[in-house]
Amino acid sequence: MTIFESKISRSYQQEDIQQILNLAIARQSDGGEFSREQLLEIAAELSISTESLLQAEQEWRLQQQQQQKHQQFNFYRRSQLKRRFGKYLIVNLFLVCLNLLTAGQLSWSLYILLFWGLGLGLNAWDTYQLQGENYERAFQKWYRKHQFTQVAQSVFSRINNWLKAAS
Results as ranks from 00 to 15, higher is better:
residue 88 Y to R: 02
residue 145 K to P: 01
residue 42 I to Q: 00
residue 164 K to G: 05
residue 141 K to L: 02
residue 82 K to V: 11
residue 136 E to Q: 08
residue 160 N to L: 10
residue 90 I to K: 05
residue 119 G to R: 07
residue 92 N to Q: 08
residue 110 L to V: 15
residue 155 V to Y: 02
residue 158 R to H: 07
residue 129 Q to L: 08
residue 117 G to D: 03
residue 167 S to T: 05
residue 154 S to T: 09
residue 125 W to D: 01
residue 108 W to G: 12
residue 101 L to V: 13
residue 126 D to S: 14
residue 138 A to N: 15
residue 123 N to P: 07
residue 40 L to M: 05
residue 146 H to F: 15
residue 152 A to H: 14
residue 46 L to I: 00
residue 121 G to A: 15
residue 134 N to S: 09
residue 151 V to G: 13
residue 55 Q to R: 03
residue 131 Q to C: 09
residue 4 F to S: 14
residue 50 T to S: 08
residue 60 W to E: 13
residue 9 S to N: 12
residue 29 S to Y: 04
residue 140 Q to W: 00
residue 109 S to Q: 09
residue 103 A to H: 11
residue 49 S to L: 04
residue 47 S to Y: 06
residue 87 K to V: 02
residue 23 L to A: 13
residue 15 E to R: 10
residue 137 R to I: 01
residue 154 S to L: 11
residue 43 A to T: 03
residue 128 Y to C: 14
residue 37 E to T: 07
residue 120 L to R: 07
residue 113 L to Y: 01
residue 91 V to Q: 04
residue 72 Q to W: 08
residue 107 S to W: 11
residue 105 Q to T: 12
residue 76 Y to F: 14
residue 101 L to F: 05
residue 81 L to H: 09
residue 144 R to T: 07
residue 114 L to K: 02
residue 124 A to T: 13
residue 37 E to G: 00
residue 159 I to L: 12
residue 55 Q to I: 06
residue 107 S to C: 12
residue 85 F to Y: 08
residue 108 W to Q: 11
residue 63 Q to M: 13
residue 83 R to Q: 14
residue 148 F to I: 14
residue 82 K to A: 05
residue 31 G to Y: 00
residue 81 L to E: 14
residue 38 Q to H: 10
residue 80 Q to H: 12
residue 159 I to P: 06
residue 57 E to R: 14
